[in-house]
Design a protein around this nucleic acid. Structure first.
Lengths: 199, 199
DNA sequence: ACCCACAAGTTGCCACTGTCAACATAGGAG
DNA sequence: CTCCTATGTTGACAGTGGCAACTTGTGGGT
């Protein structure tokens, strides 16, 4: 008797496969401007199948961005696991952040792109806030220990984030080459930032 | 006798009109993800006409980005026209930069998007470098006057640019609201940056 | 004035896209 | 076993980027 079709109608795990396939495609030339039809082709399903799991392409992109923020938050909290000096924590987290961005440039750009509307995707917004909260933890601990100036922590967080974010984008764009900006530019800039933070 | 067609085949000025139309469309919802066909429609020509002036859509986007950098450079040099203290110059230029970005959010994002390939468009690369050079001028003058620390100026420029770029993106995303980050966050952050720069 | 070459338009086409509707199949609950 | 829902597929539509071939307009040279 004939077996059932090699690929039954009920995939069982298609949502995860679509996400994983899209994540793979992020590292290709088109970055997050891949096409949903190509994702479906590579997942081995029809072009309309993803629409049973995502209302549209924007929803898939938002999911990717949210997963990116989750991963970033894990990288940040992993970098400051063992309690140590505020300075060491700050540097470790900043470097983990920049490493995340330079290792996943298309994902990083997607996370901050206008194409993922955080107002339309609450999970994404929360994930972004959770990643940002790791930075707040570092700054609050630094203030409590007396290592950092006692100032509104959100203001300090904005300054720190703006700088690290800018550095990450410069690194992604290949603008942080030693012959352009001197040796170890990231260390130099982060040290300068810390001088502004410290008591 | 009948007049010639209302719209002769030879437009005479189509390249400029395409650019101006695309610039207008940047401020609409899709930002720089407008379609070239829609640009052509609004310019009153056929869908293929822009291809006589731009090899592809990417070339038009690169042109828009280059014009953006030119405009940014003019804003920066205008902000520091009259010689004054290094500190005042730095603040004026930083605010002009942030104002440019928040006034033209889609153009600003396009300028730093992976979609405009600076290696493929030398004019764009030069325009970006010229805008960046304005910052070098400020820092060099600051060092010469003794107001800023005598350090590798490109390193200082990278730190300054990273911070201002990050602030601009935060402002564009509406993240610099006083209830979130305290009053006058830009002033606070720039002042802190200056403390790191000054002798 | 005429001719020719080039510039710069148009028309039509191709392969592809995002997304929707209708249909087909699979799974699970009652 | 039946029925409902989930989740696939097929087909269609309106649109896109970009190309080739064609058409019209311009300007230079004779």
């Amino acid at each position: 008797m004939q077996e059932k079709n090699a690929r039954p109608y009920h995939h069982g795990n298609l949502k995860r496969v679509v996400i994983a396939t899209a994540q793979d495609m992020l590292s290709e030339e088109k970055g997050w401007q891949f096409t949903l039809r190509e994702v479906a082709r590579r997942a081995g399903v029809s072009h309309a199948a993803p629409y049973k799991h995502f209302p549209d392409k924007g929803a898939l992109l938002a999911e990717l961005a949210m997963l990116g923020f989750n991963e970033l938050r894990e990288q940040l909290s992993g970098a400051i696991e063992r309690p140590r000096s505020a300075r060491a924590e700050f540097l470790a987290a900043a470097k983990a952040y920049i490493h995340f961005g330079t290792t996943n440039p298309s994902l990083y750009r997607l996370m901050f792109s206008a194409d993922v509307d955080k107002t339309a995707f609450p999970n994404l917004k929360e994930a972004g806030a959770a990643a940002f909260a790791e930075l707040l933890v570092i700054l609050e601990r630094g203030q409590q220990s007396g290592a950092f100036k006692k100032q509104p922590v959100r203001g300090q967080a904005v300054a720190s984030w703006a700088l690290v974010h800018g550095l990450t984008l410069l690194a992604i764009d290949g603008q942080l080459l030693p012959e352009k900006v001197g040796a170890r530019p990231i260390d130099a800039v982060l040290t300068s930032m810390l001088e502004g933070l410290e008591s």
